[in-house]
Nucleic acid binder design. Structure first.
Lengths: 194, 194
DNA sequence: TTGGTTTGCAACCGTACGGTTGGAGGTGGC
DNA sequence: GCCACCTCCAACCGTACGGTTGCAAACCAA
């Protein structure tokens, strides 16, 4: 049998190369030749390891976005600080933001891919952490709050074009936007919950 | 010369068909044969009117998103109500939301397309309206506030997959999410501005 | 030592796709 | 009435692309 390390290394190289290619171009725009070249592996190996281009995309999405939710810390006592840190993280990792967007566009109306259970679980723990920090029981309302905080953190990195239209030259001032969002969250959450 | 009405009708049919196709599939995934078929026009007419597939996409983006900003009313005295109405609008028009996302993914790091001046101008007027409603002078801060309100309204329609992960079955409860967001905005904006 | 399995490669295949071409019909100006 | 121009069509073209094939090398178990 061939060395397992080598087989695993081939697979890892393909996933890393595919992540870059799919982040930049999406499924339809990505090219399997470019992925193979970037990985330094023969393109037939993509079919050997993953089956076809779309299954490779599924694998990239599952792995990358699971990694993403693993990296993001639990909300602590300060939701404004949490959102600011997340906004910084997303700004620093636009390729992950773009994968989230390709995910949304590509899997519209579909069930979650297999393999996303831990991603769901981590988000449930984040919502629970947020509830506890607010002295509340976890509920649908705290899940919505987590979703809204996630949206506030993500949106600037997702929509640079819209930022350019609304903000003009200020669009590039990430710190100002991050601080504005943090202030917005602080203002919203110093009120007693509705 | 051929009847202008007929020429304009061909162009309009192509744009309408292209809007649906690009909203669903993006540039790379869209098919010019499908666009022509949907428009009931020969595919060569796409090249006659627009030049190539990407220029057709540019035309669709410019027209559709200019229409979008024209349709959205100015923020009035109640930003929470404004955001709720916009959230409802985006939920009812997912194809426009998707075009915004394709725009963001496709034109990363590029200058705005020619023809978007009125879109920029309308957004400037919205930011000004928001400032006036708050008894403030228009400033970078009110532009950021408009951007944040836009993000809050858009995010649920943009990220149904993430909604599914964070909210589970509640992801389909648009009214609950819209009201949560409106409450969040009301709470944030009853504070004196920082 | 041999045979079977696994992994990987170079070369190749078929077609789906964006785009082009040659010609037809209608219209208006002279 | 003729010619030039505009617009549109059916048929076509070349190639970029996802995916496949036949074979080689390495490894392991018997």
């Amino acid at each position: 049998m061939a060395p397992k390390v080598s087989t695993a290394a081939t697979r890892a190289a393909l996933l890393a190369a595919a992540r870059e290619e799919f982040a930049a171009y999406g499924v339809a725009g990505a090219r399997v030749d470019r992925i193979a070249e970037r990985a330094g592996v023969n393109k037939e190996r993509i079919y050997g390891h993953f089956g076809n281009k779309e299954k490779l995309f599924d694998a990239v999405i599952t792995e990358a976005l699971d990694d993403l939710t693993a990296q993001i810390a639990l909300p602590g006592g300060d939701p404004a600080d949490y959102v600011a840190k997340r906004a910084d993280y997303y700004q620093a990792h636009p390729e992950l933001v773009r994968l989230l967007m390709w995910e949304a566009l590509n899997y519209r109306g579909q069930e979650l891919l297999p393999g996303q259970e831990s991603r769901v679980e981590r988000c449930a723990r984040k919502a629970a952490s947020l509830a506890v920090a607010r002295g509340e029981e976890p509920s649908a309302e705290t899940a919505r709050m987590l979703f809204v905080l996630t949206g506030l953190a993500l949106f600037p990195a997702m929509m640079p074009q819209l930022a350019r239209i609304i903000l003009g030259e200020d669009a590039d001032d990430h710190e100002a936007m991050r601080d504005h969002i943090a202030g917005f969250v602080a203002a919203a959450l110093t009120q007693p919950s509705r």
